[in-house]
Simulated assay, not measured.
Amino acid sequence: MMAKQERSERTLERLVVAAAEQFAAQGFVRSSLAEVSSSAGVTKGALFFHFSTKDELADAVLARGQDVLETTVEELRETESVFLQVVVDVTHILNQLLRSNAFVRASVRITRERANNDPAPLDFYPLWLGRLWKLLEESRRNGELGRSVADASARTLVTAAVSGVETLTWMRVSHAETEKWLSNLWELVLPLLRADDTEWKVRAVAPLTGVAQFEDGC
Rank of each mutant, 00 (worst) to 15 (best):
Y125A: 00
S38Q: 14
F28I: 12
S81R: 12
L145W: 11
T159M: 04
E75I: 03
S81V: 05
F23I: 10
P121Q: 10
T79M: 09
E13K: 09
A160P: 00
P119R: 13
A154D: 10
I93Y: 00
R14S: 13
T198C: 07
S107G: 15
E80C: 15
L135N: 04
V42R: 02
A154N: 08
W133L: 00
V17G: 02
E6I: 06
E75P: 02
W200R: 14
V202C: 04
A63N: 04
E78Q: 15
H92A: 02
E9N: 11
S139K: 01
R131N: 08
D151K: 10
N142F: 10
W200Q: 15
R10K: 11
L76N: 06
K54C: 08
T169W: 14
G217K: 12
R105W: 06
V61N: 07
A40C: 07
R14L: 07
V108L: 05
W128K: 05
A60G: 06
V86Y: 02
S139Y: 04
L57V: 10
G217P: 02
A195P: 03
V87C: 00
F83N: 03
A212V: 08
Y125T: 01
E56V: 08
E74I: 01
L47T: 01
G146D: 11
S38P: 00
E74R: 14
W186P: 02
L33C: 08
R194E: 12
A150C: 02
A24Y: 11
R140E: 09
F214G: 08
H50M: 06
V149G: 08
L185D: 01
E56H: 11
N116T: 15
R64Y: 10
S81Q: 13
K4Y: 04
V86D: 07
V104K: 10
D196Y: 03
A106M: 13
M1V: 06
D67I: 04
G146F: 03
S52L: 05
T79D: 13
T178H: 04
H50L: 06
R7Q: 15
M2T: 14
V202Q: 02
K201W: 09
P121R: 13
E75T: 09
S31W: 01
V173R: 14
S38R: 14
H92C: 05
P119Q: 04
E215T: 14
V29D: 10
T111S: 15
D118G: 00
V88Y: 01
R77N: 08
A160S: 07
L69N: 14
A46N: 11
L192G: 08
V211T: 15
S39W: 02
G210N: 09
T111W: 14
L168P: 03
L145M: 11
F48W: 13
Q26P: 00
E187S: 14
V158A: 07
P126D: 00
E199T: 12
A34E: 11
Q22D: 09
L168T: 11
L15R: 02
K180V: 13
A115P: 10
H50G: 05
E56M: 12
